[in-house]
């Protein structure tokens, strides 16, 4: 089923890659944010089905953004996609309320299969 997706990442290349993968699979990218604060703002305005969230970003990092989004919408579906795949980050992400944790590098299969796991 097609999903509306918000991408939150400070890398234009990652936006480009995710958009290409998601749109080829029939999903809609409804918004692009380049830091956690923009991501929180756009989440409130767009109410996407799923958020792809980086961790290390300026102004507000991904963990804080997940906590803020979760506080306003406990049912938010958030996929954390980061190069920082160590246990400490994974624990923080889990406690913040991340639905799925993915490590970069990624390919199309990793992205689409993660989306398919979401209700």
């Amino acid at each position: 089923m097609s999903k509306r997706v918000l991408i939150v990442d400070d890398s234009p290349i990652v936006h480009h890659l995710l958009r290409k993968t998601l749109e080829a699979a029939g999903h809609e990218v409804c918004g692009d944010a380049k830091n956690g604060r923009e991501g929180v703002d756009l989440y409130g305005k767009l109410k996407p089905d799923v958020v792809f969230m980086d961790v290390t970003m300026p102004l507000m990092d991904g963990i804080e953004a997940v906590k803020t989004i979760r506080a306003s919408d406990p049912a938010a579906q958030i996929i954390m996609l980061t190069a920082m795949g160590d246990e400490q980050i994974m624990t923080e992400a889990n406690q913040a309320g991340v639905t799925v944790f993915l490590k970069k590098p990624f390919d199309d299969y990793k992205i689409i299969s993660a989306l398919a796991k979401l209700v």
Binding site: S11, I13, T82, A83, M84, G85, D86, K103, K104, P105
Partner: peptide, 12 residues
């Protein structure tokens, strides 16, 4: 992004 992913992979 390349250097970020390489450093991140070994960090874990």
């Amino acid at each position: 992004e390349l250097v970020n992913m390489v450093a991140g992979e070994v960090k874990s």
